[in-house]
Amino acid sequence: MITQWIRIPLERPVGFSIKTLTHREHILVRIQSDQGIEGVGFCLQDISGRAAKAAMDDLLVPMLLGEDPRNINKIWENMYWQTVRAGRRGNLLHALSAIDIALWDHQAKLAGMPLYKLLGAYREEVPCYASGGYYYEGLEVFTKLEQEIQGYMDQGFRAVKIKVGRLDPVQEAKRVKLVRDLIGPDVKLMIDANQAYLDVNECIELCKRVEEYDITFFEEPLPIDMMEAYVRLRKQTSIPLATGEVGATRWEFQELIRQGALDYIQPDATMCGGVSEWLKIAALASAQGVTIAPHYHWDVHVHLGCATREVAILEKFIGTDVKNFDLIINSPMQVTPRGTLVPPEGPGLGIEWNEQAIRKYLVDEKVMAYDSVPKGV
């Protein structure tokens, strides 16, 4: 088993409402079996790659050594319940998520089929939206936004999302109006505040200023911890609400759904507990008629979206200005002329890793040997 911590610098600083990014960090985990099959999992870890890798190396990986990698449910339960005092969310759960994704990648490769086929395909492609509208230091806010959105339209996107929450409500409303005027009435428009608003009344002010621009959903207007505040906000605005990219496990999402706080949930398999937990969350959403719009890593979510009817749309970044994970992948996924993403037909996740690039951005690596991997696996 190999764990790798990589840090990929961004070409220039890029910001959203509460933070400016200069790089992206990920943890990779590679699980090998005695047939030479390797399952690879990953998680985004901008804040503390070192902590997530330590949680993986010191707490979780020792629980896997000698286990049959096909016993995914058994392994998940053991990793989660044996570490609840160390953390049921955050760094440890992100590390657990990466391991679970690696196990499912291995399972599908063992079966010789794409992950979405192994899970029971519902469709062959999923709609996606262009995710952008970030704040770039040193660039004029409105000019940069106009150029970016026009680029998405030229590429044929039928849905876009922009950031809000860094500027005052008047300025943010001007940005939203600019985008709506550019894309016209038939293209979907979403906004994302990255949990910027701590005051429901302030958030209501922004909602009132942008409601006329037909917003498909308002993502993370408030911190996910403020569930009752979401309920209050939902009563005060006609804009559908979404959150969940930092949500943890089925239990947190169950409470969000139970309180009637949301119209869309956004579980991220690299953070919520892996493929195993994502599927449980999707089942909760299905039972309550809640729509799913997964966050970020389309390389795994395209498979989950193709296996799950409740997924309405996937997030897609163009280029590597913000999401530069594509720099360590050969043949990154492209958007179809229909504005959809199609999962690779290779076994597992179908990702071809650029090993030279991984070595270039590698911060730390640890190799752990199995002594008792079950034979025939």
Score class of each variant (00 low, 15 high):
198 L>I: 07
199 D>T: 09
201 N>A: 12
201 N>S: 09
204 I>D: 02
205 E>H: 11
205 E>W: 01
206 L>I: 05
207 C>W: 07
209 R>E: 13
213 Y>F: 14
215 I>F: 13
215 I>G: 05
218 F>E: 02
220 E>M: 04
225 D>S: 12
225 D>R: 11
226 M>S: 04
226 M>E: 10
227 M>C: 06
227 M>S: 01
232 R>F: 14
233 L>G: 00
233 L>R: 07
234 R>H: 10
235 K>G: 03
242 A>H: 13
245 E>K: 07
248 A>V: 09
250 R>W: 04
254 Q>V: 00
255 E>V: 09
258 R>T: 13
260 G>A: 01
260 G>Q: 05
261 A>W: 08
261 A>N: 07
263 D>Q: 07
263 D>C: 04
264 Y>C: 02
264 Y>N: 04
264 Y>L: 03
265 I>S: 01
266 Q>E: 10
267 P>Q: 04
267 P>D: 10
268 D>Y: 03
270 T>G: 12
271 M>A: 13
272 C>K: 00
281 I>D: 11
281 I>N: 08
284 L>E: 06
287 A>E: 02
292 I>R: 02
295 H>I: 03
297 H>Q: 15
299 D>M: 12
300 V>T: 12
302 V>G: 00
303 H>W: 14
306 C>H: 08
310 E>M: 09
311 V>R: 01
314 L>S: 08
315 E>V: 00
315 E>D: 09
318 I>G: 01
318 I>F: 07
319 G>R: 04
319 G>T: 14
321 D>E: 15
321 D>W: 06
322 V>L: 08
322 V>Y: 15
324 N>F: 14
325 F>A: 06
326 D>Q: 08
327 L>S: 07
328 I>C: 05
328 I>M: 03
328 I>K: 04
330 N>P: 04
